[in-house]
Design a protein around this nucleic acid. Structure first.
Lengths: 221, 221
DNA sequence: TTGCTCACTCGACACGGTGTCGAATAATTT
DNA sequence: AAATTATTCGACACCGTGTCGAGTGAGCAA
């Protein structure tokens, strides 16, 4: 009764092709308008403080029309998340394949990218993290994202361990990766809540980098 | 309009003395019943999935009577948190003053205590963490709890650094402490979501301990 | 042009939850 | 016993949700 929602938005237009810009059927336009309004409102309020009619009046349509485009408020968040998720994968890849540069550099670069992304899309990312506990749909999506992050981190740790550069387990590479990735997420969440400050951001990147380095390689400098 | 709530529960009985058991005015009893029902319901649902009449029918009273005892659902959670918070302080104190034992022992003991507490009161603690973003009252309470944890951890790190045992900053002792404490909270949160398993708990304690040790002291073994 | 269809929009409705009020009742004090 | 205070209740007004059936209009076929 409570979890019956199908992952596919109810009456949503079949796969609004992201690339094809010809023939923006009117429906696409209002879907976009709803999405934009939602992203803007999330800067102020949390998802469940946002009423459907705030979304629709912002988009210039009637409240009940909303349900033609989205199944629920969560579905809107899901769509919003997808926009942002691709950016996340990029910063994940950064740390995976590093050339000959020292680990400190590639880790710092990856973390820095993640922080930047949270700074850019904080409201949406926070709402998504929050909705993980509420919406099956959102949870599925983000646990997949997290899985990829953890997987590739664990893999990298194992490579470094085999090379004798990183300190051996226990903890398992996987357990260590889980903790480190979660730590990044938590700190980015709370950082994105604070007023924007380059100094604060830099300190956070440095702190997280230091913990990663020490946790994986044992020694910092 | 939205944030006008006073920190003091509306018509609540003046300071239901925790210790004095004589003269349990009838009101205290039903307040307790509401609290107990809430704690039990939180094992299944999140706070905002719990309707007021579920609380009151569980306590055998009428819905509107609820508002005589508590200002809102959040106020119930606040009261529930206070019950648990004291236990938290104990495990904080554990790591602060250690005798001559090696740091690994005291850190493991403190983390182990925290994990145990989350296992015992997971639902309430999760709801409280969650409500931090929603309720001013709950946020104030928990930021105070977090502050104490971070403060005492930072203090301890500085002591160890002055003694030349811990690796020097940067990161600041405070920044490092913030990250480590938050990490513990996050991992306990997600651990308490998983089915109870002694093995899993042990692994989590070991992993967190390892990260703390390496982050603070640089080398693990 | 007419007429058909299909994407899209709307207002009305039923439902369920919240918070408040004033009156009724139980407990305690004087 | 009377007065006061604590506690409970039902009724009410309000707000947000999700659904339904009835439009509306743009494009397309004949």
């Amino acid at each position: 009764m409570m979890f019956g929602m199908s992952p596919r938005p109810a009456g949503a237009p079949p796969a609004s092709g992201a690339g094809s810009r010809r023939k923006r059927s009117k429906g696409d336009l209002t879907s976009q308008a709803i999405l934009d309004t939602a992203e803007q409102l999330l800067e102020t309020k949390s998802l469940d403080e946002i009423a459907v009619d705030e979304l629709t009046s912002g988009a210039g349509i009637s409240r009940s029309t909303f349900y033609f485009h989205f199944e629920s408020r969560e579905a809107v968040l899901y769509a919003l998340s997808e926009r942002v998720a691709e950016g996340l994968y990029d910063s994940a890849a950064l740390w995976l394949r590093r050339g000959s540069e020292p680990p400190a550099e590639s880790i710092r670069r990856a973390i820095s990218g993640t922080v930047a992304l949270w700074r850019a899309h904080g409201p949406v990312l926070r709402a998504a993290v929050r909705a993980r506990d509420t919406s099956e749909m959102v949870r599925g999506f983000w646990s997949e994202v997290a899985r990829k992050f953890i997987e590739s981190t664990a893999q990298q740790i194992e490579i470094e361990r085999d090379a004798g550069v990183a300190v051996a387990g226990p903890p398992t590479a996987r357990a260590l990766a889980t903790v480190l990735v979660s730590m990044n997420e938590t700190m980015c969440y709370s950082l994105s809540l604070a007023r924007k400050s380059a100094a604060r951001d830099r300190e956070m990147v440095e702190t997280l980098t230091a913990v990663w380095l020490r946790a994986v390689y044992g020694v910092s400098r």
